[in-house]
Structure formats: C-alpha cells, structure tokens
Amino acid sequence: MYSQGLIGADSSTTESEEFLAAFQARIDREEKIEPNDPMPEGYRRTLVRQIGQHAHSEIVGMLPEGNWITRAPSLRRKIALLAKVQDEGGHGLYLYSAAETLGVSREQMTEELLSGKAKYSSIFNYPTPTWADIGAIGWLVDGAAIMNQIPLCRCSFGPYARAMIRVCKEESFHQRQGYEIMMTLARGSEEQKQMAQEALNRWWWPSLMMFGPSDTDSTNSDQSMKWKIKRFSNDELRQKFITATVPQAEYLGLTVPDPDLKWNEETKLYDHGEIDWSEFKAVVSGNGQMNRDRIRDRNQAWDDGAWVREAALANARKRADNQHIAREAAE
C-alpha cells in the first residue's frame, strides 16, 4: 500500500552512450524490462532501492494498525482490520520477490530493515492513539498510496509492475473501510466527531508528505521519469490527491487543517499551504515519534520467530537426508 517518493537513490551509471541509448529506446517504445535483460547499473540500483523501500513500508505498515486489532470496536471492524493487515504483509512479500529478481537477497533486505539502514515510508513513524486513527489511515494513507501506486502498474520494470497490479487490485477495499470508519464517527456523538476531526488533523500533513519532496528539491525524479519507473512528479500526484480528498472531508463535515487551502478556478485544483519539510526530514532521518519503536518491534518479531525458521529448516534437511538414504537403499 505504501510507496513514497524514493528516498536518496543514486541513479548515476557508467555504461557507454551506445548502451544507454539502446536501453532508452526500448523504454521509449514502452517495452517492459525483465530481470535478465541488459540494463544500466543505475536503473538496477534505483529499482532495488525503491522496491526495497516499498516492501519495507508494507511490512512496517502492519504495526500502526496492528496496534488496534485487539481493541477494534466490533467483530465486523476486527475481521476487516485483520484482513487489511494481512494484505499489507502479502504486499510486502510480492515486493520483496520483485526486488529479488534484481539480484538482491531477501536476507540482505531483511538485515537492512532490522539494522535501521533501510528507509521506509515516513508515515509509519506516527502513532495511532485512537480508533479514529485507523479510519484516517485507511482513508488518507491508503488513499495517498493508491494515487502513487496506480501509475506504478505501468512501471517499465516488469516484475514491479506486475506486483503493483496485484497490490492495487487488493487495495481498494482498504481505503473504503477507512472512510467508512470515519463516516460512522462523523455521524456519531459530538465526542466521536471530535475524535474523527483530531485524527484528520494528525494525518493530513504526514499524508501529503508521503508523496516525497517537492519537485524543486527532488533529486531522483528526472532520471526515474526518463526511465519510466515513475510517470508523474511528486507534486502532480500530491495535487491530485488533495483535489480528490477535500470533497470527501467536506462530505464528512470535517475540516482539513490547512487555513491556506483554496480552490483555484483556473487550474481546477486546490492550492495548499506550505508543507513543513523540516518535519519530513526529521522523520526520514530517524527522529519521528515512533522510529525506534517500529524497528524494535520488527527486531523482536524476527527474533521471536527464529526458532520457527530454524525448526523448519532442520526438518527440511532431515527429510531430504531420509529420502537420500531411502533412494540409496532402493538402488
């Protein structure tokens, strides 16, 4: 669900002009690039990093919502939330597999996440103090992710595009379940409406930051656009998201926490206020409210599961040995 503008990739590449031109010609013909095809090192490196960050975001993305599974207000809400969190885990696995086709191992990616070296979407470093946050995440965070991910279904790298098609197909229920939670709260008591408004206040700006830095500051965008890894700039997608979401907030009777938000009759888009990029930078560099908790929780899950992985491998080895002995005996 949760891609973000790519954080800090190095798309520089050292191949000959001729090689790069031939590769670009394939991209311009809209040919998909498959794992064993020749590709510039910068293209491979950018994708490993982007798909890896995307996969990590799905995995870490289970944590803020997992926080509310046991306390969901009804059985209906609980099964929906369980299914959604399970989907996020699945999406992480599709994406890890897509990254592995580029020659990076699952073990290496896992290690980079657990050591804190790998980045993931800044949005998951915010806490979920109330049930309304679960509604706001589905509505806004999944909504922003869908905006980002639909163009990725046409990404030039085949395995990533195919994974994104599966993800997008499964994703649309996520946003609807979130909006439904918000709708129920907004139509409830004064306190419930207040809770919904506060959740919108908490998640609005971080959701806008999910699209990554402004085009004027985004260093990777040009090359990624040229290679058709991405199809729209960060600001274009952000603008599309705002324009789609503001009427949904109005329908709920909630107020978007941006006093500068204004409909622009000329562009047919909403102009928005200044985004606090210093907050974004702080969260990405590890100083968000929940960065340390998220990494600690992932490490604990990994360590707690060690005995299962070891037992499964030991059992597989034992069975392989037994078969070997049986085969020898039969010969």
Partner: peptide, 11 residues
C-alpha cells in the same frame, strides 16, 4: 503468479 521463500514443499 510469483515466488516465495520456504524451508520445504509443504511449507
């Protein structure tokens, strides 16, 4: 449809 990691065929 895709790939995954597992210790053996049953898993």
């Amino acid at each position: 449809v895709g790939s995954l990691h597992a210790a053996d065929s049953a898993l």
